[in-house]
Design a protein around this nucleic acid. Structure first.
Lengths: 226, 226
DNA sequence: TGGATTTTTTAGCTTTACCTAATTTTCAAT
DNA sequence: ATTGAAAATTAGGTAAAGCTAAAAAATCCA
């Protein structure tokens, strides 16, 4: 008597795995170890879950070859990422959160909110297509804009480029960038890209000059338009 | 090596049980059956959980006698109820939810949000002390205003009373009241309380007269002040 | 090519939270 | 005081999601 038209929602664990595969896998597939490291679980747990994801039709999986998402898995991942980024935007813009605190809270909330909540939140926020880090927000239909931005360390001296996003993994870096207003939407002129020590020297709109070491230059993404 | 100062958060199931005991128990204790009916689980599951709640120090429990909350359990229940009511207020006032939709969403969210989120939300909402149904919102410290309101069916003809809250169990009733603006904060003059058929006849501030049958008259709470 | 190392899987176990079926206790009514 | 119904508990079982330890496959490298 199970009604196939009513599909039960996936558990939050399943969602975490799908998201991890999406984020790690890119085009190809994600390895057991990488997923285990990202989710802080044992590799054995990942092996188990890969089998279950396949049974659920969310991933393709071949023993010893890692897992990749099916179309349904991809849609599900993008749905969660949409939720996550909209929630982050709300926390930052309406509740006064700062960069550090946002990620953890959004990680929990994205599994608890309904689609209805998500779309109303999108409306409240004015249907943004980027979150405050500059990451694109997938559409409600599960499409994601292609991203032609690249890492600042790959820029060429003389270019004038727009910051498209900043990596959101390291809170201290986010603070550093926030303090100096190196945030998505700002234009930079590239003064020098020094291969010797991977330092990139840039000038912002106010003429302020910054020398960014390797780690910082790889945390800022830029592109030609804004 | 378990650090007793770091207390792990309770699962959402534990929270559901504590809330149910609080809502059903009042002063005394809540019975296995009542909790089972409210949470839509089997009585056997409730018996199990009662034992676990006692081991966790959240409830007192004696076989065949039901369970009542300890001080810690009471504080935990009020914390969840605070979250729930603040979230409902937010959904109604900022996201355009209507009465029906609100409860279910809040029920899920209250287990996912942090205390930090809750307090920021309270700030955004202007630290309300009542939710839109008129239910008092517990303080962050775990205190709850004593409620001296009573059910409309216990009013006496001639009194002038203020609607303090409306029962939030039945969505159709909430709609009925909402449509007629019979909401917390409105004053009513009691024209007649007919014991024959339990119909209560009231007049609102605009002189509109309503005859409310037993079910409706028990869903509206009133008191002398506002 | 053959070891050594890393990665992955398998096997078996734990906890949480639920269930059904059977049994026991309580309570109310004769 | 007994009994019958309602309520509660116990016993035993399931599924999800995790774990460790041991075995197997893949990869790297000299």
């Amino acid at each position: 008597m199970t009604d196939p038209t009513v599909e039960k929602p996936y558990s939050s664990s399943v969602g975490d795995y799908i998201k991890a595969i999406w984020e790690l896998g890119g085009v190809g597939s994600a390895s057991t170890k990488d997923v285990a490291d990202r989710l802080l679980v044992s590799p054995a747990s990942v092996s188990n879950m890969f089998v279950r994801l396949q049974e659920m039709g969310l991933a393709e999986y071949e023993r010893y070859q890692g897992a990749s998402l099916t179309e349904r898995g991809r849609v599900e991942a993008l749905r969660l990422i949409r939720r996550h980024r909209l929630i982050e935007t709300f926390l930052l813009e309406h509740l006064g959160y700062d960069w550090q605190e946002v990620h953890e809270e959004a990680e929990r909330l994205e599994h608890a909110v309904s689609d209805g909540f998500t779309e109303r939140l999108a409306q409240l926020l004015g249907h943004p297509d980027r979150d405050p880090h500059g990451d694109p927000i997938p559409s409600a239909e599960g499409t994601l804009e292609t991203d032609d931005s690249f890492v600042l360390s790959q820029a060429i001296a003389g270019q004038r480029l727009c910051i498209s996003k900043v990596r959101d993994e390291d809170a201290a870096m986010l603070d550093y960038f926030g303090d100096r207003n190196l945030v998505p939407g700002r234009w930079l002129r590239i003064r020098e890209v020094r291969s010797l020590d991977d330092v990139v020297i840039v000038e912002d709109e106010e003429g302020e000059v910054y020398a960014l070491g390797e780690a910082l230059a790889r945390a800022i993404f830029v592109r030609n338009d804004c």
